[in-house]
């Protein structure tokens, strides 16, 4: 498989405090490789730095040191103009955790899809734009006539999250970062969203990075799991290797604490 994105010794340090400088290494010397068409889970508890890492890859937060290479270009050093950024975001996009916060409540949900069309250079008001939007909504199992023209508060979290996936379908990025895309959703509707990510990968060959705190979820859907702890990647490998034969102490401890459905703890 070909390498799509690579991070080299990526580090992000946050400094706070006025009199006494408190230094927090949110991401500490992380080097990972993402290949084309794979589903990778980045697992870690809150504060492990997984979201910070995602923001740096998405070019939303500048790293303190280290580099990110996407198709041979240094994301933070080679890209300069808004056009460069647009090129990057056309190739690397995201779905976030909170579907309600992903929509500006003052606008109809059509807006996020229009933004996607503008990014790929289609006029949202053209018949072509309308066709693309309707097609994308149908892919995620929403009826366009019942969805378009609505405000975010009129739809459920699951529906909103599906609209965001249809946005990704329009943009067709090479890499999609999904930051806890189902953690705010009800258990009974999560499966549908997970299925959609799989459809995206199958049909478009999208690489998907699934950021989650839920080991069970990661185990169920991914080709590869990365475990993050205190800003470092501590464990890496196939789901079976990570879940059944963990090497790092933290992973072992984590696995012991994940509640099981069919077996009761002693």
């Amino acid at each position: 498989m070909r390498i799509l994105l690579e991070t080299k010794s990526l580090t992000k340090v946050f400094e706070t405090g006025f009199f006494k400088r408190i230094v927090v290494k949110a991401v500490d010397d992380v080097s990972i490789i993402l290949s084309e068409g794979e589903i990778v889970s980045l697992v870690g508890q809150s504060g492990s730095g997984k979201t910070t890492l995602a923001k740096m890859i998405l070019r939303l937060l500048e790293p303190t040191s280290g580099d990110i290479f996407f198709q041979g270009r240094n994301v933070w050093k080679d890209l300069k103009t808004l056009e460069d950024f647009k090129w990057y975001w056309k190739n690397v996009h995201a779905v976030f955790q909170n579907p309600y916060a992903s929509f500006n409540p003052f606008y109809k949900i059509d807006r996020v899809l229009h933004q996607a069309l503008m990014l790929i250079g289609i006029d949202p008001d053209s018949p072509e734009g309308d066709r693309v939007i309707r097609e994308a909504l149908e892919v995620v199992g929403l009826r366009p006539d019942e969805t378009l023209g609505k405000y975010p508060h009129q739809l459920s979290g699951g529906q909103l999250q599906r609209i965001l996936i249809s946005r990704a379908w329009i943009i067709k990025p090479k890499l999609l970062l999904a930051d806890e895309p189902v953690s705010m959703l009800d258990v009974s509707t999560r499966g549908k969203i997970l299925e959609l990510f799989d459809i995206l990968r199958k049909n478009l060959g999208t690489t998907i990075v699934f950021i989650t705190h839920d080991l069970g979820l990661a185990y169920a859907i991914s080709d590869r799991i990365l475990v993050m702890y205190k800003g470092k990647i501590v464990e890496e490998g196939s789901p079976d290797k990570v879940i059944l034969n963990p090497e790092h102490e933290y992973t072992k401890e984590l696995l012991k604490s994940v509640p099981t459905l069919y077996k009761k703890w002693s």
């Binding site: 808004l82 647009k86 976030f96 955790q97 933004q115 503008m118 990014l119």
Partner: peptide, 26 residues
């Protein structure tokens, strides 16, 4: 730090456009 601002940025919106379209209504 809200997600919809990130999504507007990732759609290639400039800071000024985000200020007027996303922030001012709030």
């Amino acid at each position: 730090e809200r997600e919809f601002i990130y999504l507007s940025r990732m759609a290639g919106f400039s800071s000024i456009k985000i200020a007027f379209q996303d922030l001012l209504p709030h």
